[in-house]
Simulated scan of single mutants.
Amino acid sequence: MPESVRAGRRRSAAPSKGDLRELKILEVLGGLLAVKGFDALTTADIAERAGLSRGSMYFYFNSKQEALVALFARTVEALREKSRAAADDPAAPREAIATVMRRTRDRWHEHGLIMRVAIDQSPAIPELSALWQETADIFIDAIAKILVRAGVAAHGGPDGAQALARALCWMVERSFYHASAVSPEALDEACETCQVVWLRVAGLDS
């Protein structure tokens, strides 16, 4: 392949200036959440920290709410990918559960603040609520498939794999939400406890 064609492909694959500015805005928003909180910060705060005029800021996001949705979407995409991978994990159920819990804990370690803010704001921002529900549904599907592989019945009753998976999903979400606001150690402990519960539900605690 001619060098000019390869160079052209490299250039086309590189992020545009607009992409980089948008990423900068989201990084700035993440930083401001840690020092100012979502309710207190303004679009002007984000623009100033990102080195943009307010007019330029509105070219990318019309509001701080819209920017938060974009930031949260980037954050949960990795959770979605890991949950999909967990659903098809060929490892034994016990190992698959440990892998899911470790990956989920690591995401909360890294992005707990963003996830807590998004969860807190979801009643007022429907897009956030939809994103989180879609992510939870993928996680629930992965949990249910692992439970079925462990021998849990797949019927639709309250003790079926899907119902148990739903309860486990929201147990993990609430436990990680609260623990991540306390300390990394608390989050690690919450992860261990949730894993114990999941193993018992799956009949793998012996």
Results as ranks from 00 to 15, higher is better:
A92S: 12
R166T: 14
A167P: 00
G157C: 05
D205G: 05
A47N: 10
A161K: 13
K82V: 08
K24F: 02
K64Q: 05
R105A: 05
L20S: 02
D205W: 10
A202K: 07
R149S: 08
L23T: 04
A67F: 00
S180T: 13
E127L: 07
C194M: 00
A87F: 01
E185V: 11
M57P: 04
H109W: 07
V76T: 10
E189T: 11
A154F: 06
A150C: 11
I143C: 01
D159L: 15
P123L: 04
G30Y: 09
L168R: 03
M115R: 14
Q121P: 12
F59M: 10
R80F: 00
A179S: 14
E173C: 07
A7K: 15
A92G: 00
I125H: 09
Q133T: 13
R84T: 00
S16H: 06
I146D: 00
T135V: 11
D137L: 09
A50S: 15
L113W: 12
A124N: 11
S206Y: 13
V201A: 02
H155M: 04
A165S: 14
T43R: 02
L71D: 04
A85L: 06
A40M: 09
A190R: 09
G112D: 03
G31Q: 06
A163T: 12
P158H: 07
L26E: 09
V182M: 04
E189I: 15
A14C: 04
R102H: 12
W170A: 10
A40F: 09
H109L: 11
G203P: 10
R84Q: 07
S53Y: 10
A47R: 12
T42V: 08
D137A: 14
N62Q: 13
T75A: 13
E77G: 03
A179G: 14
L199S: 02
L168T: 04
S183C: 11
R54M: 01
G160H: 14
T193D: 05
E27F: 08
P90E: 08
W198A: 08
E110L: 01
T43V: 02
A73T: 15
A92V: 15
L41F: 02
R166I: 01
C194Q: 06
A87E: 03
M1L: 14
F61G: 04
L147W: 11
W108Q: 08
P184M: 05
R149N: 06
D120E: 15
A202G: 00
V182D: 05
A154P: 13
R49I: 01
